[in-house]
């Protein structure tokens, strides 16, 4: 039935961090999902749910403890060969949360953006390199003159555009946007989200959008995965998740979003969800198919209870 080949498929990803001999933090516990070319997959959850860890494991900033990650037909989990690593580094790029902290303050914008080109020896001469940078700058809504400035001369929104330009210049197949808009003002958030959508339409890049703000995620994502305590508790298309949330954690997340409607909002009390007292054990649950691409984590009895 599926004629599309997934760009990225993650199976049973575990990421544990050993803190001391007797204590291990289990940040991610068996997460499966796939991302198709040109789509946006939104990963949401509260802080500590492991969403950033997943992003970092995928781009191999960490070594995954267990699980299989296949990116563009190549297995990128475990030890990578030189060519696989090069393939990964050129085709997967990341945009970071804090646009103030992720740009080297001592380098000019031109150098920052061209760094990827330099490392992989993509440009043959100086002229070509500069032209590529100028082109990318234009694409993200900045101008040529900005190339010779330093990061501190830009506003937050502009800096995030530089971060996007840096990721785009490699012409990646997948961009991991880790809370890329959380540090920005609302009106600027909208601009950056629109920019990312435009670029996606033009280049057909897939985006893994990691965020905790569900209302923005709804705008940008085709499909959503809800994470809690390192488990993927619910996943499905944006429409499925918002129309028919099943897992109590998803419900509490959705109800926590304040609506800009004073009369309704004043009387509404958000649904609370407490994992400890709810008696749910994520480790026992399995992924249950609801409809289409909609899956929920839980046991049979739990599912009946929530329905």
């Amino acid at each position: 039935m599926e004629n599309k080949q997934p760009l990225l498929s993650v199976e049973g990803l575990h990421q544990h961090f050993k803190v001391s001999r007797s204590y291990t933090v289990k940040a991610v516990n068996g997460v499966d999902f796939v991302i198709y070319p040109g789509e946006t997959y939104g990963l949401v959850g509260e802080s500590g749910s492991g969403k950033s860890t997943i992003g970092r494991s995928l781009i191999r900033l960490y070594n995954p403890t267990a699980g299989k990650i296949v990116f563009d037909g190549e297995n990128i989990s475990g030890k990578m060969s030189k060519s696989t690593e090069k393939h990964l580094r050129t085709n997967m790029q990341m945009i970071f949360q804090d646009p103030m902290a992720c740009l080297n303050p001592r380098k000019k914008v031109l150098e920052i953006i061209a760094q990827g080109l330099d490392i992989h020896h993509i440009c043959k001469n100086k002229k070509e390199r500069e032209d590529m940078v100028y082109q990318i700058l234009e694409k993200v809504g900045l101008s040529k003159e900005h190339a010779n400035r330093y990061p501190h001369q830009f506003s937050g929104g502009q800096r995030q555009r530089i971060g996007i330009a840096r990721a785009l210049i490699m012409n990646p197949k997948l961009i991991i946007a880790d809370e890329a808009i959380s540090a920005l003002d609302v009106s600027i958030q909208a601009q950056v989200v629109n920019l990312m959508k435009d670029i996606q339409k033009e280049t057909n890049t897939a985006i893994l959008f990691i965020a905790h703000d569900l209302s923005m995620v709804k705008y940008i994502s085709d499909r959503i995965g809800v994470l809690h305590l390192g488990y993927l508790v619910e996943t499905g298309t944006t429409e499925e998740i918002f129309r028919n949330p099943i897992h109590p954690y998803t419900k509490s997340l959705l109800s926590a979003i304040p609506h800009p409607n004073p009369i309704v909002e004043k009387s509404r009390v958000s649904v609370t969800y407490n994992y400890v007292t709810s008696g749910i054990d994520y480790a026992k649950g399995s992924q249950n198919h609801i409809e289409g691409t909609h899956y929920v984590l839980g046991t049979k009895e739990e599912l009946e209870m929530w329905a």
Binding site: S187, A190, Q191, V193, K197, S215, K218, Y219, I257, P260
Partner: peptide
């Protein structure tokens, strides 16, 4: 008010 992402609309673009 228009720039606020709204959970009920399916607009392709956010107003800025």
């Amino acid at each position: 008010l228009s720039a606020m992402p709204d959970l009920d609309t399916n607009d392709d673009k956010l107003y800025t």
